[in-house]
Nucleic acid binder design. Structure first.
Lengths: 116, 116
DNA sequence: TGTCAAACGCAACCAATGGTTGCAGGAGGT
DNA sequence: ACCTCCTGCAACCATTGGTTGCGTTTGACA
């Protein structure tokens, strides 16, 4: 009955996907199967430098990996790490969901337990 | 084939639950069925004022609601809004998951389609 | 009833971060 | 050889998560 049953949430990983711009970038990278700072910035309302910084963050937590390809640096999503992130989303979500259900159930029990 | 099928993500709501401290606070509020800035701060490694600011944020997006009770202000989680947040987590998660599966499937198809 | 402790709200301040502009450098195409 | 394009680095700005400090309300209790 401890929350230790759920895989502990990696705050770095979570906050990496917590930023809306970075989520958008991950979407774009998944859709196009990779991209560069410049190519991403052209599909988003921020500058290339901002995108580059975000790519740095995503790289640091292992969600993307970028290696040089000619004169550009191509980034791709690391499937395994993104899968971990998805698992954490699901984990936190289901934990809250369980608590909500449990509270609702307790409330119903209380209602039911006093017909006086 | 548009991402418009998924309920659009509310960036305010998302970034509210994006902060690890605020997630922790929600956990505590759910576990104890409510609490005050002071009571929460005693169970966390941050000051009351920091907690108070976070409660302000959570209040603004409707995840918690606080009303005065004697000399303290008691906050409780808004079940419906937290349920919305959980839904968004699930939504983003499953979108990514779908993309991962799709990509993996395409990759397998490519593998399979060239026995030459 | 008068005093005291506890909880609150507000303000000033600091560090980290998401964003910008500007600029120098290296790799490719013609 | 040149010109273009993409990259990386630096300076700078605004927002935000965090702190300390202080004044105010309010419940409790002698």
């Amino acid at each position: 009955m401890s929350t230790a049953l759920v895989e502990p949430v990696d705050d770095d990983l979570w906050s990496a996907i917590g930023d809306p711009t970075r989520r958008r970038m991950l979407d774009l990278l998944l859709a196009a199967d990779g991209g560069t700072a410049t190519s991403l910035s052209r599909q988003m309302p921020v500058t290339r430098q901002a995108v580059a910084k975000h790519l740095g963050v995503l790289d640091r937590v292992g969600l993307v990996r970028g290696d040089p390809a000619g004169r550009e640096r191509r980034y791709r999503v690391d499937d395994a790490q993104l899968a971990r992130a998805v698992a954490q989303l699901a984990s936190v979500g289901s934990a809250w969901d369980a608590r909500l259900r449990r509270i609702k159930r307790i409330a119903e029990d209380i209602q039911r337990a006093r017909p006086e």
